[in-house]
Amino acid sequence: MMVPLVFIAFWPSPVDQPMQSQLAEFLSFLHRSGMPSWFNYKFVEASANVALFVPFGVVSALAFPKKRWWQVGAFGLLISCCMELGQLLFLHNRFASPVDLVTNTSGAVIGALLASVAVKRLEVHRPRAADLQ
């Protein structure tokens, strides 16, 4: 699961660069069709960063079931800090952003909360050993 994160974080150029003009055209079309102006490139980029870390939060919460959602979020922040520091130090065409730290951490927290809710629902609906006898 870390492999896609590493590829996206340390790709030499922004991963959306080849599609920036198409995305701009599509957003322009949406705005002409009535989409609010706040739904812009920055919003799409931030949403993509959140979505990128939701699976990280789910997998981390399931892998470490004793950890609380905020601990998984702190782990997501640590991983995000490492990625942003790597971009700052080693990638000339990329830039580190505090907004990315917030959105990545938010995605990890959302993923952890989703996993927690799913596990609790499964526990409620799972028959107990005493019920099976």
Rank of each mutant, 00 (worst) to 15 (best):
A108H: 02
A129W: 09
V44W: 06
S28A: 10
S37V: 12
A48G: 10
S80A: 03
G111R: 04
K66V: 09
V58L: 08
T105Y: 01
A96E: 07
C81M: 13
V15A: 05
L77K: 03
L27A: 05
I79K: 03
H31V: 12
R128K: 12
M2N: 15
R121F: 09
P55T: 07
S47I: 06
V72H: 02
S37A: 15
F43R: 05
A63L: 13
L52R: 04
H31N: 06
C81A: 12
F64Y: 08
P18D: 11
T105A: 05
L91N: 03
P127T: 13
H125P: 05
L62S: 08
A61T: 05
K42G: 14
A108C: 06
L91C: 05
M19I: 11
M1H: 11
I110F: 07
N40F: 08
A118C: 07
G73V: 01
L101Q: 01
F7S: 15
M35T: 11
F43I: 10
M2Q: 07
L52A: 04
S80Y: 01
P98A: 11
E45P: 06
S13F: 14
S80N: 03
F56N: 00
P12M: 05
G73E: 01
R32Y: 10
V119D: 14
V15I: 12
V54T: 03
T103C: 11
K120L: 09
L23C: 06
F75G: 15
S47G: 02
K120F: 10
L101Y: 00
P55G: 11
R32F: 10
S37H: 14
A129R: 09
W38N: 04
K67C: 08
S47E: 04
F90I: 04
S28Q: 14
F56I: 00
L114F: 09
R128L: 13
A9C: 10
K67M: 13
S116A: 10
K120A: 12
A61H: 02
M35N: 09
K66H: 02
L62F: 07
N93P: 02
L62R: 06
R32Q: 11
L88G: 14
A24T: 14
D16R: 13
A108L: 06
W69L: 13
G111V: 02
G34E: 04
G73H: 03
D100W: 01
V119A: 12
V3P: 06
Q133W: 15
M83N: 07
R32L: 11
N93M: 10
F10C: 10
M2F: 13
